[in-house]
Structures are given as C-alpha cells and as structure tokens.
C-alpha cells in the first residue's frame, strides 16, 4: 500500500493561492476556515520564500497522541483523518500540531470552538462513501475515486506534490539533481556567491 505524502517545493511556489482556492471550492470550506494556506516569509525582501501548508498527515501523528476522545485514525494510505462525531472541539490537537493545521469554527460567543476541521488529503471522513452528509462534514472523497488531492492537481508550477511518497520522492530527487544541491543549500549564494548547477 502506498504511503500518501505532501511535498511543497519552496523553490517553485509563486504564492498564487490556487491550492487554497481549489481546496475551498472542492470541499466548500467556509470563510475563516483554512484547510490549506500559503505562508510567505521575508515578504518583499531578498530571499523571500512561499510555502503551501496543510495537515502533513504525520507518521505517529501528535494530534492523535493528545486527543482525549481518540477521534483520530490513520488510513491504510497513511492519511490522518478524524471523526467529527467524536470531536469535542477541545483544541488540544491545535497545540500539538507542528504545522498549525487544525481549524475551528466559532460557534458562539466567548470564543467557544466548534468541531475541528482540517485537510483530509481529499479522502473524506471515517465513512468513505461520497454522500451529502459526509460532504457537509468532511468534503469530497477524491481518493476513493482514484483521484489525488485537488490542491496539488491544480498547482500551476507543480510546486505542491501529493500522492504516493515514493513517487513524490523520485520527482523531487530528479529536480534536485537537475538544479544542483545548491538550490536547497541555504546560504551558498550569499556565502560563496554561487549556486551549484547540475
């Protein structure tokens, strides 16, 4: 069985937000909830970099480790999903997540949180069927239809890759071989005024 992974190639991301828009439109994610977002560091300065971030579907996921109601589970494809029927909106997973992936709708005054929402790797929820009830809770299940996450499918520069981890690693290895390891070697351009062409 394939182990599904995301990889965002920061050398290629152009901060076009197509991944964010594709995700929102596919799953009808409401305003204020971002299953995926583009983060830009050093905006407007030399060395500016953008990276598209969502749930990374961690191995031994920290969110699952801290969840008091055990709502998380990992699918056979390595996708980390959760049950919104079990979730109590406590927010522990938000503190545990290294990527800021969990999102909570505001359901009332005094900052009370609704049930957690996050990227499903376009794999729906606990019930894999593409029903209207499942769509409202989790969005579409593209994986069940043999399709990959729409964010990566829509990526205009193919910066964002999603799919079988082995295949993604192979694509990225080819890129690094072609660009030279200087493309990822932080500081080489500044320190030695050179990039290593492949």
């Amino acid at each position: 069985m394939a182990r599904m992974k995301f990889l965002c190639d920061a050398d290629r991301c152009i901060e076009c937000n197509a991944c964010v828009t594709a995700c929102k439109n596919e799953h009808e994610v409401p305003w204020g909830i971002n299953r995926r977002r583009v983060v830009t560091i050093n905006d407007g300065q030399p060395g500016e970099r953008s990276v598209s971030m969502a749930c990374m579907h961690c191995t031994d996921a920290p969110c699952a480790a801290v969840c008091p109601v055990n709502c998380f589970f990992t699918t056979a494809d390595g996708v980390v999903l959760h049950s919104k029927d079990l979730c109590i909106g406590c927010g522990y997973c938000f503190y545990a997540c290294p990527f800021g992936a969990p999102q909570y709708p505001r359901v009332g005054n005094f900052g009370s949180r609704g049930k957690m929402d996050k990227c499903t790797f376009c794999a729906g929820g606990p019930d894999p069927a593409n029903t209207q009830a499942n769509f409202v809770q989790y969005g579409t299940n593209r994986l069940a239809e043999g399709k990959l996450p729409l964010c990566a499918e829509m990526c205009s520069t193919k910066s964002l890759l999603a799919g079988d981890g082995d295949i993604i690693a192979k694509i990225y290895k080819e890129r690094v071989a072609k660009r030279g390891y200087g493309s990822g070697a932080w500081g080489w351009k500044t320190a030695y005024r050179e990039t290593i062409a492949g």
Binding site: C16, N17, V20, T21, K24, N25, W31, G32
Partner: peptide, 20 residues
C-alpha cells in the same frame, strides 16, 4: 493582484477569491 482580474467586479463576487 493574483486573486482578482481587471476592475474586479467578477472576481470580488467570488466568495473563495474575495476571502483572500
């Protein structure tokens, strides 16, 4: 901007783009 087009009436009426 990447999110909008021209005078923006059409794209500012699109909820996914408008949010950005």
């Amino acid at each position: 901007l990447v999110e909008y087009e021209g005078g923006g009436e059409e794209t500012r009426s699109n909820k996914w783009l408008a949010e950005l």
